[in-house]
Design a protein around this nucleic acid. Sequence first.
RNA 1: GGCCCUAUCGUCUAGCGGCUAGGACGGAGGCUUCUCAAGCCUCAAACCAGGGUUCGAUUCCCUGUAGGGUCACCA
Length: 443
Amino acid sequence: MTVITRFAPSPTGLFHAGSYRTALFAYIFAKQNKGKFILRIEDTDKERSKKEYEDNIIDSLKWLGLDYDELYRQSDRTDIYKKYIQKLIDSGHAFISKETPKEAGDRAEVIRFKNPKKKVIFNDLIRGQVEFDTTELGDFVIAKSLEEPVFHLVNVVDDHEMGMTHIIRGEDHISNTPRQILIYEAIGAKNIPIFAHIPLLLAKDRSKLSKRHGAIPMTEYRERGFLPEVLVNYMALLGWHPADDREVLTLDDIVKEFSLDRVQKGGAIFDEEKLKWFDHQYIAKLNNDEFQSHASPFVPEWLATSSPLFKRCIPLLREKISSFGEIPQLLADNGELRFVHGLKDYAPLSLLWKKNPKREAALVHLQKVQELVMAIPDDSFTAESIKVAVWNYAEAEGKGDVLWPLRMALTGQDKSPDPFTSAFILGREETLNRIHLAIKKLS
RNA sequence: GGCCCUAUCGUCUAGCGGCUAGGACGGAGGCUUCUCAAGCCUCAAACCAGGGUUCGAUUCCCUGUAGGGUCACCA
């Protein structure tokens, strides 16, 4: 039997982390079983469904690499539902009910399901046996009219028609399950899908993650320069864990090792700090070409990613960022790497090492360093060769005494990378210019 | 409120009757060090409570408590 799962979002908001994790688990389960993964847009609510949200869902899924085998839109399937509704009415499982409208838009006549009022038991793959008494559900509405079916009906009809074997969805649907099982029985479904209700993703205060409460759209993570593999990895670990202690896992790893009985039962809070840590790990593993192409949208114009200057910055950027979106602030006017763009004017006295603030000493050291640097040929001007050239002198004279003025001369900032790396990035000529300027400031 | 689900460090989690309760993020300290990071090392930090069952409960059962979900002509 081929496993078939689906992700069935309603396009009534931007695709966020909560929905994403549900989709991810269903996807992983399908892949693991060499089955099919279906995307079904549940847009029966014409008021709230928006094309832009549907686009956002599809766009996000694509970015995250969750490819689906089939795509359906419930708004295209009205005829199918109509047939089922008619059948249910004919068989006495549903009836047309006269109503007194409570709200604007309410119909005077709707179609209700004739509730057999019985006990429903199903076996949830994550929670085990779950038991409900459907009596209190009453004769619930399954359609506003023959052409306007409502969630429970369309959801069941589609899952049945599409041959769904496993329904992996959020825990918020667990109490919908009994009434849906009633519908399966009423339409004469031979095989009712197996259910697995995964725990919800929670906001920081443990309340439900909602559109206006902590649910960040996945496209926003893309805009902030997070890698899609990172979202896959991190989100899979929210509620699931492999048998060992590994955390950095590819989708393939996860698909290989995933198992529903290692899925957590309680809800989990999305922790952005850990997400950043993951992203930092992934960035560390990127090669320079990959790094460059990911960084490209975030690098300011003055620093073209094709330039040698950018290439020299890569190791530093790689070390400093935990998402590519942090690059702009690092290179901004008050950023840690602004010295790359240009030297900010600084006070001459800031060139003095705080533990030995003598103008004369700083001047002598800078002049000596200037000589040493000058001796390095342009074609071997690397952080390492600069270090080698300066190191012995610095050790002999006091590292702080020599290196602090040098670093300040090169960057004009109290906080910056080490002087060797900075000099390498600036290049021989600019390095000498800046040392020269510092010497002038002190004389 | 009814019904349903859940409960291990602040957070994500390992554990499936006997463990010094393990790992990761974050935090603290240290090493490194000219500054800031990164990196490495160390430390602090948890079994919701009360009853059972058992020689022995974090683990099994019950009750309570807490949190969450759901009770639409939304999905």
